[in-house]
Amino acid sequence: MTGAILFHELTARQRIAAIADKGSFDELLPPPERITSPYLAQLGIPVSFDDGIVIGHARIGGKKVYLAAQVGPFVGGAVGEIHGAKLTGLFKAAARDKIPCVLIVESGGVRLHEGSSGEIAIAETMRAIFECRALKVPTIAVIATDIGAYGGIGILSTCCDFRVMTEHGRLGISGPIVIEKWMGKKAYDSANRALVWKTSGGKTKYLLGDADALVHDTADAVRDGISRFLGKSSAVSLTAVKARQKELEKRLKKFGAATDPDAVWNGMGVRNIEAASLASGPEFVALAKRGK
């Protein structure tokens, strides 16, 4: 119960160091190059020498990968022009070199101070991801912190072949506060943390098939989760997309009117909600399976 530092408590660089083979990470455009956001500077907002994302190449279990980690504490990990360009470039390089690309996500989406360039960068990155997928180069998003993957980064994460999540991770498009603003506190209380995690947290996303692996909140577990998918890719074909669409329609029919967040867990085969709430990673997976 003690000893390991939780993955979600590490900094972006610590996460990379903990996942990559020892000493194998080479950072591209590292902080000494001081490539910073021109917009933030104009607005008098502090800049960061990595613009909130660390990119580079490394090895995981001996396998070459391109690896990136977003820096949540810097403007919520939001994507600006430089941040976005680094992200796009990394996936493009992955496609060019046919090397798997892993993104450790921690971002609320586009940076409002440089919205247009952020949006464009996310669109370009998605294109690069689909280029990877067409070439069967695996792309993996790791979502393991409560900043999670929202907005454009939520969409981008679901464009990847696979998603590895922990119970701390959250995945969605509109964040809880935005939903509450539009739908009212009665419909969705963003301060109700249990509700927020039951609807967008890693466990629920795993049950619904939006996450492909649910792992413990440790670097070892996350690395193992990534390794499982490094040799695989999931094809983008018309049949696959249509099948996915069918699945989503079924989901909407089944849970669209549900008001109790436990309904989704129940509906997906979780029998002992209390035990499942406390279980983590594979223990949760086992409990969910038992119900099926």
């Binding site: 409560d146 119970e167 301060a191 109700n192 943390r193 249990a194 927020v196 995690w197 039951k198 947290g201 709430s277 406390l278």
Partner: peptide, 9 residues
């Protein structure tokens, strides 16, 4: 049984 403001599961 922690109070609800501390529960995120």
């Amino acid at each position: 049984d922690p109070p609800s403001q501390f529960v995120d599961w």
